[in-house]
Simulated scan of single mutants.
Amino acid sequence: MPKSIKLPLDEKTVSSLRAGDQVRISGTVYTARDAAHMRMAETLDKGLELPFDINGQVIYYVGPTPAKPGQVIGSAGPTTSSRMDAYTPKLLELGLKGMIGKGYRNDQVKQAIQDNHAVYFAAVGGSAALIAKTIKSVEVIAYEDLGIEAIRKMEVEDFPAIVINDMHGGDYYQEGVNIYRKTNI
Rank of each mutant, 00 (worst) to 15 (best):
G98T: 12
G74Y: 08
Y87G: 00
V163W: 04
A41W: 11
K153L: 08
H37E: 11
Q71V: 03
E175H: 09
Y60P: 03
E139G: 02
P89C: 09
D85H: 00
A32C: 09
V23G: 04
V29E: 00
K133N: 02
R105K: 11
G20S: 08
N178Q: 11
K102G: 01
I25H: 13
I131Q: 05
P160V: 09
I25G: 06
T134A: 13
P78A: 08
V119I: 14
E157R: 13
G103Q: 01
G126Q: 02
D10M: 14
V177I: 15
I148C: 07
T31H: 03
G170P: 07
I141V: 14
M38W: 11
V177C: 06
Y104T: 04
A123S: 15
N55H: 10
P69Q: 07
G20W: 11
K3D: 06
K133H: 06
Q174M: 13
T13C: 08
T28I: 15
K102D: 01
G20Y: 07
K110L: 01
A129F: 03
S127Q: 05
D85R: 00
A123G: 14
V29W: 06
I162Q: 04
A129I: 14
A150W: 12
G98E: 09
D158N: 15
Y180T: 06
L50D: 02
T80E: 00
D107N: 09
T134Q: 03
T183F: 06
S81T: 00
D115C: 12
E49W: 02
A41R: 13
E144F: 06
S75W: 01
G103F: 05
V72C: 00
V119P: 01
E93V: 01
G56Q: 04
I73M: 08
T80A: 11
R83L: 12
I162Y: 01
K133M: 03
K136W: 07
A76F: 07
I5N: 12
P51D: 05
E157L: 09
G47Q: 06
L130K: 10
R181F: 07
G27A: 10
G95T: 08
E139K: 15
K46N: 12
G27Q: 08
E155Y: 08
D107E: 12
A36E: 05
N55I: 07
G70D: 06
R181E: 04
S15T: 11
S75D: 10
D166G: 03
D34E: 09
T65W: 07
V29C: 01
A112E: 00
L50H: 06
A67G: 08
